[in-house]
Design a protein around this nucleic acid. Structure first.
Length: 665
DNA sequence: CTAGGGTTAG
C-alpha cells in the first residue's frame, strides 16, 4: 500500500514539474557492434561525468517504483520520461533502476536506448549486479541476437553470474530452436560450479524434450538427484513430461508415484502423456484419481489439454464426463475451453451438443466458427457448414477458415462455390490447393482438377496426387488412377502406405483373378524388401467408460468368440439381401482376412454389448475399406440401428442401408 | 522494490 501511495505521490510531483529541463543530458547513440560496444562505451566514458556528481540518494526508491508502475502498465514512453527526469534532477540511478529501465528498452524494441543504458550501467558501477547482467542478456538476446547475449554472459564476472543468467541465455537458444545449445550451456554451467537450481534444471529438461533425447534427459535427471532437487515439484514435473515425450512411460510413472506432492501441472502432464500414447483409459483413470484422491481441482487449462485427446480418439463419453465435471464444479470456462468442447463433441460424433454449445457461446472468435463448420462438414453436412460460413464476419476470416469452407464445398460437391471461395484466399497454401483438386476430382471433373494442379504448380505433390486418386477411385478411372498411384510412389518412395494403395488398386481393379493376385503379391514383396512398415489398422469403441481396441483379425478380446459368431450370422443376412455380396480378398489394410476387419469387429462388439435401438459409435485410424463400407450399410438395415463410424477423414452415419457420405468417401 | 518456471482450441 505504501509503495502504491508513494508512487502516486511521486507521479503527481513529476507531473507538476513536467516541463523541459535546461540541462537535459545528451546521450550519444552508439552504433557499434554489440561485441565491441562495451569497450567503446568505456572509451567514451568521459561523456558521462555527470553521474559522478550525483549523490546516492534514498529518493531512488520512489523513482524506481514510478518506473516500475509505468512498466507494469506497459507505458514505456512514460517510463523513459521518468528515467530522464530522474537524471535531470540529479537522482542517481542504482542497481534497482537499471534492470527496470533496461526491460523498458527491450520491450519497446529500442536497442539504441539499451546500449546507452548499458553504458550508463558501467559508468554507475552496477554492471556486475546479477539483475543488471540478467536484463542486459535479455536485452541483447531479444534485440541483437543470441550471440550478443552469449558475449554478455561470457564477459560478466563469473562469480556474480547466477543460474538465472545462464537460464535466460538457455531460454534464448530454445526460442531460436537450438535446444542442443541450451543443453550444452547447462552442462557448461554445472561444470563452472555455478549453483544449479530448479528453474535451470527445468529449462534444460525442456530442451531435452525438444530434442527427444532420453539419454540426455537421464543425465540431467542424475544432476538433479545430485543436487537434491529430483523431487522438487518443478523439476519432477518437467522430468515426468520428458520421460513421456521421450517414450518411457515407465520412468515417468515411477517418478510421478514417488513425488511427495503433486500439483495440477503434475497431473495434467502425466495424463496428457498417457493420452498421447493412446492410453486414454489410463488417462481418464488418473483424471478421476486427481479429482477424488488428491483433491486437486483441474482448471480450464488442464481440462482443455485433455479434451483434444478425447476429440482425436472420438471418445465421446469421456469428453462428456469432463464436460460434466466442469459444469458440476462450476469451473469458469473460457473461449478456448468452449471451442475445445465444440470441437470435441463434433469430432466424437455428437453434432447436436456441438451446435448447442456453439450457439450459447456469446463472443465467438474465428476458431469457434472454424471448428463448428468443420464439424458439419466432417458429418457430411457441407451445406449447413456453408450456410454458417456465410455468417462469419468477413474481417474475421483467415486462411484456416477457408480450409473449412473448401472442405464443406467438398462434402457437398459445390464446385462453383469452391472456386469462388478459393479466389477469396489471399495466399492459398497446399491445403487449399489439395482441397480444390479434391473437389474438382470428386465432382468428376478430373481434367479440370489436373489442369488446376498444374496451373498452380502442385501437380506432383503427394497430397494433391492423393486427392486426384480419390476422384479416380470414385469415378472408376482405373488406368489414370493407376498412373497417379505410380507417381505417388515415385514422389514418396519411403511411405509404405503408398504401396499398400498400389496393391489395393490392383486388388480392386486388376482384371483377372490370377494376374491380379500376382500384382498384389509383388507389391507386398516390395514393401517387405524395402523394410517399410505400413500403418496398422485398428478400430475402437467406448463401452462402460472404457475404450475397447480391435486390430484386424483380433481374437484377444474376451468376447471374441461371440463377436465372430455375430459377424458370421450377419454375413448370412447380407447374402440374402444383397445377393452377390462378397468381400475383397485384399483391402486397404494389407491383411488378407476376409472377415474380421477391425471396424466390423468393433461394430459387432457394439451391437452385442449395447441395448437394441441405440446408436453404435466406432472409430477407425485408417480409412474404411469399400467392402466394409458396404457391409456396415447392410448391417444398419438388418439390425435397424444407426451406426456411426469415424475414419480419419469423415464420419459415416449408416442408417437403414445408406450412408451419410453417399459413397463419396 | 526486481529477472528465469507449464501454455490450453481450428
Amino acid at each position: 500500500m505504501d509503495v502504491i501511495y508513494s508512487s502516486i505521490q511521486a507521479m503527481s510531483i513529476l507531473e507538476m514539474h513536467n516541463r523541459p529541463s535546461k540541462h537535459t543530458i545528451h546521450i550519444r547513440v552508439n552504433h557499434y557492434n554489440s561485441r565491441t560496444c562495451a569497450l567503446k562505451f568505456t572509451e567514451s566514458a568521459s561523456t558521462y561525468q555527470a553521474f559522478d556528481g550525483m549523490p546516492v540518494s534514498a529518493d531512488s526508491l520512489v523513482w524506481n517504483n514510478v518506473i516500475q508502475t509505468h512498466l507494469g502498465n506497459l507505458n514505456y514512453n512514460k517510463a523513459v520520461t521518468t528515467y530522464q527526469e530522474m537524471l535531470t534532477r540529479g537522482i542517481r540511478p542504482n542497481r534497482h533502476t537499471l534492470p527496470r529501465i533496461l526491460s523498458v528498452s527491450r520491450l519497446s524494441g529500442s536497442l539504441s536506448l539499451g546500449k546507452q543504458l548499458h553504458c550508463q550501467a558501467m559508468k554507475l558501477g552496477v554492471c556486475n549486479d546479477i539483475y543488471v547482467t540478467g536484463s542486459l542478456i535479455e536485452l541483447y538476446g531479444h534485440l541483437d541476437g543470441v550471440d550478443a547475449a552469449k558475449w554478455m554472459l561470457d564477459n560478466s564476472e563469473k562469480k556474480t553470474s547466477s543460474a538465472v543468467s545462464w537460464t535466460l541465455l538457455a531460454k534464448l537458444y530454445m526460442k531460436q530452436n537450438k535446444p542442443t545449445f541450451a543443453i550444452d550451456l547447462f552442462n557448461e554451467m554445472v561444470e563452472s560450479g555455478a549453483e544449479v537450481d530448479a528453474v535451470s534444471l527445468t529449462t534444460a529438461i525442456s530442451a531435452c524434450i525438444l530434442v527427444k533425447s532420453l539419454i540426455t534427459g537421464r543425465n540431467i535427471h542424475d544432476t538433479a538427484r545430485k543436487h537434491g532437487l529430483e523431487l522438487d515439484v518443478l523439476v519432477s514435473n518437467s522430468l515426468v513430461k520428458m520421460y513421456m515425450e521421450c517414450g518411457s512411460i515407465k520412468d515417468a510413472r515411477d517418478l510421478f508415484d514417488k513425488m511427495p506432492s503433486r500439483d495440477a501441472i503434475s497431473w495434467t502432464s502425466i495424463i496428457q502423456g498417457y493420452v498421447k500414447n493412446g492410453e486414454i483409459n489410463e488417462g481418464l483413470k488418473l483424471f478421476r484419481k486427481m479429482v477424488n484422491d488428491d483433491k486437486i481441482k483441474p482448471d480450464a487449462v488442464s481440462v482443455s489439454t485433455i479434451l483434444p485427446a478425447c476429440a482425436r480418439m472420438a471418445a465421446h463419453k469421456n469428453g462428456r464426463e469432463l464436460h460434466g465435471y466442469l459444469i458440476r464444479n462450476k469451473i469458469p470456462t473460457n473461449l478456448k475451453l468452449n471451442n475445445a468442447l465444440i470441437d470435441m463433441y463434433a469430432k466424437s460424433g455428437n453434432l447436436e451438443y456441438s451446435s448447442t454449445i456453439f450457439s450459447r457461446t456469446k463472443s465467438k472468435d474465428i476458431i469457434s466458427w472454424t471448428v463448428m463448420i468443420m464439424g458439419y462438414s466432417l458429418h457430411g453436412k457441407g451445406d449447413l457448414g456453408l450456410d454458417l460460413f456465410k455468417k462469419v464476419p468477413k474481417s474475421d476470416t483467415d486462411e484456416i477458415s477457408y480450409v473449412t469452407a473448401l472442405h464443406a464445398c467438398c462434402t457437398s460437391l459445390k464446385v462453383e462455390k469452391g472456386l469462388h471461395y478459393f479466389n477469396c484466399i489471399n495466399s492459398p497454401n497446399l491445403v487449399h490447393y489439395s482441397l480444390m483438386a479434391a473437389l474438382l476430382a470428386r465432382a468428376g471433373k478430373l481434367d479440370d482438377a489436373k489442369a488446376f494442379a498444374k496451373k498452380h504448380g502442385v501437380e506432383k505433390h503427394p497430397e494433391v496426387l492423393r486427392a486426384l486418386i480419390d476422384g479416380c477411385r470414385i469415378h472408376k478411372k482405373i488406368t489414370t488412377g493407376k498412373r497417379l498411384v505410380e507417381q505417388l510412389c515415385d514422389s514418396e518412395p519411403l511411405n509404405a502406405d503408398n504401396y499398400v494403395l498400389m496393391s489395393n488398386w490392383y486388388a480392386q481393379n486388376g482384371g483377372k483373378q490370377k494376374q491380379k493376385q500376382e500384382m498384389v503379391d509383388r507389391w507386398r514383396e516390395t514393401i517387405r524388401d524395402m523394410d517399410l512398415k505400413p500403418k496398422i489398422a485398428y478400430s475402437w469403441i467406448e463401452f462402460r467408460n472404457k475404450v475397447h481396441v480391435f486390430k484386424t483379425g483380433d481374437v484377444s478380446h474376451p468376447r471374441s468368440e461371440r463377436i465372430y459368431w455375430e459377424l458370421e450370422s450377419l454375413m448370412k443376412n447380407f447374402e440374402k439381401i444383397e445377393g452377390d455380396f462378397s468381400f475383397h480378398d485384399v483391402d486397404e489394410e494389407r491383411e488378407c482376412v476376409p472377415i474380421g476387419h477391425s471396424e466390423l469387429l468393433a461394430v459387432c462388439f457394439g451391437l452385442i454389448s449395447t441395448k437394441s435401438g441405440s446408436a453404435v459409435r466406432v472409430t477407425k485410424n485408417l480409412r474404411v475399406c469399400r467392402s466394409c463400407h458396404e457391409a456396415v450399410k447392410c448391417i444398419s438395415k438388418v439390425v435397424g440401428r444407426e451406426i456411426i463410424l469415424k475414419d480419419p477423414n469423415r464420419f459415416h452415419h449408416f442408417k437403414n442401408g445408406g450412408c451419410s457420405c453417399q459413397d463419396f468417401y
